[in-house]
Computed example of a mutant assay.
Amino acid sequence: MRQHTDDLLDALAGSFTRRVLVNVFHGTDRVATDLAFESWSLESDLDSAVGTSGSGVVVYPSVSGESLSPEGTKGVLSPFRARVELVMEVSAGGFRERVSLGLFRVVTVPEARDYTADVDGVSRVVSSRVKIGFASLAEDVRRRGFRFPEQPPQTDSCYRELRRITGMPVLESVPDAAISGNPTWEAKQGGRLDAVQKLADQMSATAVVNSAGAWVLVPDEQGEPVASLHLGERGTVLDVGNEIDTDTVYNVVVGQFEDDDRNPIYAIAEVEAGDLRPDSLYLETTRYYSSPFVKTQEAAESAVQAILALSTGAQVYDVPIQCHINPLIEVGDVVSLEGWVRPLVGRVVKVTLGDSALMNVTLSVRRAL
């Protein structure tokens, strides 16, 4: 969750107003503060390579006839230099608190317009409206490729290698692991970002840049909820849906691997008891699995058993929720849904915010089988 006070939690449970402002940075220098932001949207997806993207219109009343419209590499909002911080201000009565929605890279300025007026017989800019498109700071890593294929200089810590190849802060949110499989990071488009996710895979996690501008590892295993959404008279959830899909429930896993000399390694795991046995009414559903990090028969047996346990231990399905806007929720958070026909706990995998008083959230929920 984004940083907040207890008073803000109380305000979000009742009636409140909000507005979004923009701070602009060039490097570490803040060059503009509290700019009005209109027609904005912010979309986060845990499965997206970059994670978060959005757009909006910056509205600037000129003080001395200056324009905020960029010209090529020049200007406050030029996509060649600007980073923007989106800040939501929540007000309820005499209470007011600001929440940083994140720092983002400006990637495009599809439209910019200056409005002029005659002042003492001279035409002067009185305001600017600049539409911007922006993306998570993971975009910096995606654009910065490796100049040559390279291997990790040290293999005892995935976290150390993540910091080396991203040049960004990395929060240690899951246990560290050694780098296995002697990987070579490819010199290709998006190769550095691919390397980040491969390192995250070795820690059984997904890497994402959080609202503080740091990489954080979201574990595959669902933890305890950090927030809740409520149905009922004072609830915030307006619409709930769910789906049941057996396509991802496998009762046989076939592993195909190679050792360091490229000799084949095979391993098979299957459900041996219960309603999901291959000879049950469900019949056999086979999953094939391979990994460049599995190099021994022992590791292969362990890998297929782990994949089988994930598949048969629970079914993952998505619950789309529409609720009153809550600026504290981020992708990767585990939240509970209370007051519905049955309690639900799931990980937030998608969030869409915007000018509307509502937001859309998708929870990935595990149903025990």
Score class of each variant (00 low, 15 high):
S100H: 04
V109E: 10
R83F: 09
S69V: 15
D156K: 09
D245P: 03
N360W: 06
A187F: 10
E284M: 05
G223Q: 00
R113A: 11
V57P: 00
R192P: 00
V109L: 04
P175R: 04
N251P: 05
E258N: 14
S127K: 00
D10Q: 14
G235T: 07
N326E: 05
P278N: 11
D6L: 12
L68G: 02
D245W: 06
T362I: 07
V24N: 04
Q305D: 15
G274E: 14
D47N: 06
Y317V: 08
V122G: 13
A112K: 02
V240F: 15
D355M: 10
N23M: 05
T155F: 05
V126H: 05
S336V: 09
V334W: 01
Q222G: 01
I132F: 00
D333V: 08
G354M: 02
T166C: 02
Y266H: 14
V209K: 00
R367G: 00
P70R: 01
Q197L: 00
A357G: 14
A214V: 07
R113T: 15
T286K: 12
I179S: 02
V341I: 10
A92R: 08
I132Y: 01
Q151H: 08
L35I: 03
S173P: 11
L369A: 03
P79G: 03
A92F: 08
T184Y: 10
A36P: 09
V22S: 01
S64T: 13
A368F: 15
E338Q: 08
W340E: 12
E172S: 11
Y282D: 11
E284Q: 11
I268W: 10
G255M: 01
T5I: 05
S290N: 08
N182P: 15
P292N: 13
T286S: 11
P70G: 03
Y289W: 12
S291C: 08
